[in-house]
Protein backbone atom coordinates (compact mmCIF):
# COMPACT_ATOMS: atom_id res chain seq x y z
CA UNK A 1 0.00 0.00 0.00
CA UNK A 2 2.91 2.42 0.43
CA UNK A 3 2.78 3.64 -3.18
CA UNK A 4 -0.79 4.96 -2.96
CA UNK A 5 -0.29 7.45 -0.10
CA UNK A 6 3.04 8.47 -1.68
CA UNK A 7 1.34 9.23 -5.00
CA UNK A 8 -1.39 11.13 -3.15
CA UNK A 9 1.23 13.40 -1.58
CA UNK A 10 3.09 14.01 -4.86
CA UNK A 11 -0.13 14.59 -6.81
CA UNK A 12 -1.37 17.00 -4.14
CA UNK A 13 1.85 18.99 -4.43
CA UNK A 14 1.37 18.96 -8.22
CA UNK A 15 -2.16 20.28 -7.74
CA UNK A 16 -1.03 23.02 -5.33
CA UNK A 17 1.62 23.98 -7.89
CA UNK A 18 -1.06 24.21 -10.60
CA UNK A 19 -3.11 26.53 -8.37
CA UNK A 20 -0.07 28.75 -7.73
CA UNK A 21 0.58 28.79 -11.49
CA UNK A 22 -3.01 29.91 -12.11
CA UNK A 23 -3.18 32.50 -9.30
CA UNK A 24 0.26 34.14 -9.48
CA UNK A 25 0.49 36.34 -12.60
CA UNK A 26 4.05 35.34 -13.58
CA UNK A 27 5.23 33.11 -16.47
CA UNK A 28 6.41 30.43 -14.03
CA UNK A 29 5.28 26.89 -14.90
CA UNK A 30 3.61 24.67 -12.34
CA UNK A 31 6.45 22.12 -12.02
CA UNK A 32 8.85 24.85 -10.82
CA UNK A 33 6.46 25.83 -8.04
CA UNK A 34 6.15 22.11 -7.29
CA UNK A 35 9.92 21.64 -6.89
CA UNK A 36 10.02 24.64 -4.52
CA UNK A 37 7.02 23.40 -2.48
CA UNK A 38 8.42 19.86 -2.14
CA UNK A 39 11.89 21.16 -1.28
CA UNK A 40 10.53 23.50 1.42
CA UNK A 41 8.31 20.75 2.88
CA UNK A 42 11.34 18.42 3.13
CA UNK A 43 13.69 21.09 4.55
CA UNK A 44 11.16 22.18 7.18
CA UNK A 45 10.62 18.57 8.26
CA UNK A 46 6.84 18.73 7.61
CA UNK A 47 7.38 15.97 5.06
CA UNK A 48 9.86 13.12 5.60
CA UNK A 49 11.75 11.61 2.69
CA UNK A 50 10.23 8.22 3.65
CA UNK A 51 6.76 9.62 2.89
CA UNK A 52 7.48 9.88 -0.86
CA UNK A 53 10.85 8.22 -1.53
CA UNK A 54 9.86 5.09 -3.51
CA UNK A 55 7.28 6.79 -5.75
CA UNK A 56 9.50 9.82 -6.38
CA UNK A 57 12.42 7.57 -7.30
CA UNK A 58 10.19 5.57 -9.66
CA UNK A 59 9.05 8.76 -11.42
CA UNK A 60 12.65 9.96 -11.77
CA UNK A 61 13.71 6.55 -13.13
CA UNK A 62 11.07 6.45 -15.87
CA UNK A 63 11.27 10.15 -16.77
CA UNK A 64 13.52 9.72 -19.88
CA UNK A 65 10.74 7.77 -21.65
CA UNK A 66 8.33 10.68 -21.08
CA UNK A 67 10.20 12.94 -23.52
CA UNK A 68 9.80 10.65 -26.54
CA UNK A 69 6.18 11.62 -27.47
CA UNK A 70 7.19 15.33 -27.50
CA UNK A 71 10.17 14.51 -29.72
CA UNK A 72 8.00 12.52 -32.11
CA UNK A 73 5.70 15.59 -32.32
CA UNK A 74 8.35 17.12 -34.60
CA UNK A 75 6.76 15.33 -37.58
CA UNK A 76 3.57 17.40 -37.11
CA UNK A 77 5.29 20.81 -37.38
CA UNK A 78 7.97 19.72 -39.86
CA UNK A 79 6.53 21.46 -42.97
CA UNK A 80 6.14 24.67 -40.96
CA UNK A 81 9.73 24.85 -39.69
CA UNK A 82 11.82 23.01 -42.30
CA UNK A 83 13.05 26.20 -44.04
CA UNK A 84 14.64 27.60 -40.86
CA UNK A 85 15.54 24.27 -39.35
CA UNK A 86 19.30 24.55 -39.98
CA UNK A 87 19.40 27.98 -38.30
CA UNK A 88 17.44 26.70 -35.30
CA UNK A 89 19.76 23.70 -35.10
CA UNK A 90 22.85 25.93 -35.27
CA UNK A 91 21.48 28.02 -32.38
CA UNK A 92 20.85 24.87 -30.33
CA UNK A 93 24.32 23.42 -30.95
CA UNK A 94 26.40 26.59 -30.46
CA UNK A 95 24.39 27.88 -27.51
CA UNK A 96 24.36 24.51 -25.72
CA UNK A 97 28.13 23.98 -26.04
CA UNK A 98 28.78 27.60 -24.97
CA UNK A 99 26.44 27.26 -21.97
CA UNK A 100 28.12 24.03 -20.82
CA UNK A 101 31.51 25.73 -21.13
CA UNK A 102 30.60 28.94 -19.27
CA UNK A 103 28.45 27.37 -16.52
CA UNK A 104 31.00 24.58 -15.93
CA UNK A 105 34.10 26.77 -15.94
CA UNK A 106 32.65 29.57 -13.80
CA UNK A 107 31.33 27.09 -11.22
CA UNK A 108 34.66 25.24 -11.13
CA UNK A 109 36.66 28.46 -10.75
CA UNK A 110 34.46 29.69 -7.87
CA UNK A 111 34.77 26.30 -6.10
CA UNK A 112 38.57 26.19 -6.54
CA UNK A 113 38.97 29.77 -5.25
CA UNK A 114 36.87 28.95 -2.18
CA UNK A 115 38.94 25.83 -1.51
CA UNK A 116 42.18 27.87 -1.64
CA UNK A 117 40.91 30.56 0.74
Amino acid sequence: MKYIPQYLIILTIGFAAEIMNAVIPAPVPACIYGIIILFILLCSGILKLDHIKESARFLIDVQPVMFIPAGVGLIVIWSEVKDSVLFYLAVCVVSTVFTILVAGWVTQIVIKRRKKS
Binding site: G14, A30, C31, M66, I68, P69
Partner: peptide, 26 residues
Protein backbone atom coordinates in the same frame (compact mmCIF):
# COMPACT_ATOMS: atom_id res chain seq x y z
CA UNK B 1 -3.31 7.98 -33.52
CA UNK B 2 0.14 7.47 -31.99
CA UNK B 3 -0.30 10.15 -29.34
CA UNK B 4 -3.69 8.77 -28.29
CA UNK B 5 -1.72 6.15 -26.39
CA UNK B 6 1.69 7.83 -26.14
CA UNK B 7 0.32 10.80 -24.17
CA UNK B 8 -0.18 8.50 -21.18
CA UNK B 9 3.56 7.79 -21.08
CA UNK B 10 4.11 11.55 -20.52
CA UNK B 11 1.10 11.94 -18.24
CA UNK B 12 3.21 12.22 -15.06
CA UNK B 13 5.99 14.36 -16.57
CA UNK B 14 5.24 17.34 -14.31
CA UNK B 15 5.18 15.35 -11.05
CA UNK B 16 8.31 13.52 -12.21
CA UNK B 17 10.00 16.92 -12.56
CA UNK B 18 8.66 17.92 -9.12
CA UNK B 19 10.15 14.70 -7.70
CA UNK B 20 13.63 15.92 -8.67
CA UNK B 21 13.36 18.02 -5.47
CA UNK B 22 14.23 14.88 -3.45
CA UNK B 23 17.61 14.69 -5.21
CA UNK B 24 18.19 18.31 -4.31
CA UNK B 25 17.15 17.67 -0.69
CA UNK B 26 19.45 14.65 -0.41
Amino acid sequence: AYNHGAQFVSYFLNIATISLAILLYE
